[in-house]
Amino acid sequence: MKKRKIEELIFNIIMRVSAFIIFGSLIAISATILIKGVPAMNLDMITKTPSGGFFLGKEGGILNAIIGSFYLSVGATIFALMICIPVVIYINVYASENSKIVHYTRLSLDILYGIPSIVFGAFGFVLMLFLGMHVSLLAGMITVGLLIIPIIARTMDEVMRQVPVELKEASYSLGATKWETASKVLLKQALPGLATASLLGLGRAIGDAASVMFTTGFTDNIPHSLQDPAATLPLAIFFQLSSPIAEVRDRAYAAALILTVIIFAISLISRILIKRFSKNTL
């Protein structure tokens, strides 16, 4: 009897401690960024490009990186969606469940998902040279797009698999084709999940440094075409942190704060979208 009570107590403590570590690390990260970032924060940070260089400059802001990151992540997400949506429809609607192609597609996505982003960066670099491109927004979009394809596709696949078969059958039994069923019924049913998947990819795209390092480059300027190199927030943080000047290092935390706020906003938006999209689903 006693032993069971002690067991209960020990596991209770372990679980509470684990929960506290998760909650605590969120608090600690937010606190660090806020405490170090807020003093270095000012309007210039988000309205101006750096003056005196990103590495040494104490003046100006990181507008170049904010805009660069925005272009890059939106472009990469659109590119990834153009590949993910057809794939997910194919393996869930057109191909038969036990076919080899479905099996290998899912397996490939699982493996790609586990590949570190620096490897995508290295691959993107080789691909870029092979295609005769330069370090540019476009090369970055493709590389980051490839990085987030498995993230988006796997999540979408999970969502599509949860759509009840009966719904598919209901649509087919009205004489709908596979395409009509996929585009007008299943995608609609899965919309909240698909939106979440896209935003998950977007969040990852905006936050990743390793994949953009060699493909997107870095610059003090706002990019004006897909061929221009572009600054990104993670790299702005990286370069500022490695600056010999303390004031510049502090600015890294302001940049981190901005990045965190953006990512927080993305997850907030995805929650709102889910609510809005869910009204028609069962």
Partner: peptide
């Protein structure tokens, strides 16, 4: 699709489509 159009189907649980 023509064959299926000839037959209405009611399932065990109702399956409204995700729309109005």
């Amino acid at each position: 699709t023509n064959i299926r159009k000839k037959m209405g189907l009611l399932n065990q649980r109702p399956t409204p489509l995700p729309m109005s």
